[in-house]
Nucleic acid binder design. Structure first.
Lengths: 217, 217, 217, 217
DNA sequence: AATGAATGAGTTTTCATTCAT
DNA sequence: AATGAATGAAAACTCATTCAT
């Protein structure tokens, strides 16, 4: 079974899109510059120069500088995150993992890999979240839906079988995310990602979470 | 015993400083605008207008726009965080809390209160962290020192007395922070903070952490 | 007798021309946009989009944006105005109108109809006149020639027969135009032309002019 | 009696305004350039250069390029035209002119002088009228009010005393304006105003209008 | 003939910063 | 200390025009 069959979503997006080579270069270069210097810290002339393209070309396709940002973030928000999450849960269900801690470790490793593979987008995303509270609201709404739906059902199985504490699913997922974030945040925020041992990190995290989320005997 | 005798650090800063009323207004207004619109999204003329001050005055004291940001964040970085942490540990030691979970809850409530009381600075801080990895490095260095020193010693007591799992202090603190952040991040990122029940949140968080960090029998 | 056998000059132009359907669409759309938004206020990409044509096509035939304007105005300046005027005078001469006031009314109604039928071109023309004094000089030269020639001869008949005051032809035509313009200018300048009663307007105007231009007894 | 005590309204505006010398220079230069090259044909950098001022200064005061245009036209529209008209009627009433034709000549000379003294603004105004139909609507509303009010009363006196044909005031004023415009339009539209003999022009115009507007015996 | 991607010079506008008063 | 007019470099964006297909 291939749990993590994610491709770097950006390459996918570019390939699927009907953008010309130059416009793809604009997006690629913008992603790099935005993630390194921030949106406000990057000028359109800088983008044009780095993409080997005239300034006019930058605006021909994306209309405004914010349009470039949208083109970078929309796929993440609209398609990939839900898709990845759905795909991920399906795989989880199909899997035949003996106990909850192993499952957790699997899951966590998968999400960590996803984050590390898409660091740049996630950096840009993080910047945008702070500037633009609408994004977080969107995320909250989607997360709420997922908790009520698939993810909730998924967790319920483990609650029923006595492997998971009977707390609300939202609370459980919150701790899960908090713990994952405590591992990946330093990697994502410090620009050049050095050595990061997903295997060890996920094992540690799963160990902690398995204890914290075990039902009280 | 007064656990949380922190005042909003900004008021403290203003009071201690030898700034004129107009310059204090500049700082106050900048804090509000930066936290709402971001640093780059706020112009100095906007600050001047909102502070009821001439454009020249904005620069008289703080030299540059970045100088205003420093004036806002330095107290957080240099004085208040360490001070608060130190003060906090002292208090922890002096206190006579029966068990680890109660201690945790106390601690977590205290840190949550601190974050919520200083939301604006923390928002600005969060923006800056993403733009400026140096800050995170500074924080990491300080955190490392603290873990080696006071905080490590503090945790050691509980490890020795069999109330805390024998993991490295850094790992323990990481989970602690991750869990706290999972509670406060939505509050801080969504601008208008509504009802947030620190008591309940800290009780929940402590319950989870106490399980996760309990030594294995 | 057909006094006003003018067709909208633009339709004529398009029909006569050897332009492809797409190029005709460019002209039609340009006329509309120029008359609504002005020449400078209309971009070539706007024209292309509105004409359902590629940007390249706009330039294929007309070389430059100014070329489109010329293509729109030249017929007015070169062919239609003189032709219309000549044709008009011929008809006047052939007609057998009993008195000067009736003639005036006929004439005025005819010119008003011409203006109202070709409002868009005249709007564009008016814009161009203000930007480009050469046009007015051209018009002055042509008018002078006409006054010396056909139009002068025409008026002379009525001066000789004691139906028209013995003022220079230029002066008489000036009043005639001023009066006509005082009626049609509001119609042309206010974009959506509402109800305008040519019959009544021309009767009124002729009444006034007949008095003003009657020989003193 | 001083009928025409109009000062060039622009100088007045500049003097009254609280603009700095540089900002006045911007306005003065903009007026000249707009009237020569049109609004769209004049760039803000051109204005800045001609005014001996930085580009920033141009926008400091007037916010946008359109703001400069407003600053030039508002005084004409808001203050000077009504004022001049009111003042003018008062003077007319106070005057003791023996007959209607003399009055007409007086009046026409006055308005012609006004136009020629303010040619530049009027050129800019004329451009704007064509681009912006709102202006003409505003003018129509104001004109209607004036016709119902002062101007109507004024003309009524002459109708009552048998010196003026009993047509609606609006119609009378329309012919008056049409005739004046037929004289001044060529002067205003052809940039460099050459010799123009107001005395002769106004005498001629009054002669024509007096005939056209005389009551039928 | 028609397309539309690409250009690059030019435009309007912003903004941190300076400085004479 | 405070003002606010002035700056000028740089930003975002526009647009007529070209050219390979």
């Amino acid at each position: 079974m291939q749990v993590n069959n994610l491709e770097t979503l950006f390459k996918k997006t570019l390939a699927t899109s009907k953008l010309t080579a130059k416009q793809q270069a604009v997006l690629q270069v913008s992603l790099n510059l935005f993630s390194e210097q921030g949106f406000d810290g990057t000028s359109t002339s800088e983008i044009a120069k780095a993409a080997g393209v005239s300034e006019g070309t930058v605006f021909k396709q994306f209309k405004t500088k914010a349009g470039i940002l949208e083109a970078l973030l929309n796929p993440v928000l609209d398609d990939v995150l839900p898709m990845a999450a759905g795909e991920f849960l399906t795989e989880m269900n199909q899997s035949d993992l003996p106990n909850f801690q192993q499952l957790l470790q699997y899951m966590i490793a998968d999400r960590m890999k996803f984050v590390l593979e898409n660091q740049k987008q996630i950096r840009v995303f993080a910047q945008e979240i702070i500037r633009n509270p609408k994004i977080i609201q969107t995320l909250q709404v989607r997360a709420a839906a997922m908790i009520k739906g698939e993810a909730g059902d998924f967790l319920q199985q483990y609650k029923d079988s006595g492997q998971l504490v009977d707390w609300p699913s939202g609370r459980i997922i919150q701790y899960l995310l908090g713990t994952i974030i405590s591992y990946v945040a330093p990697q994502v925020l410090l620009v050049p990602t050095k050595d990061f041992d997903i295997q060890q990190a996920s094992t540690e995290a799963a160990e902690f979470l398995a204890r914290g989320l075990a039902p009280q005997n």
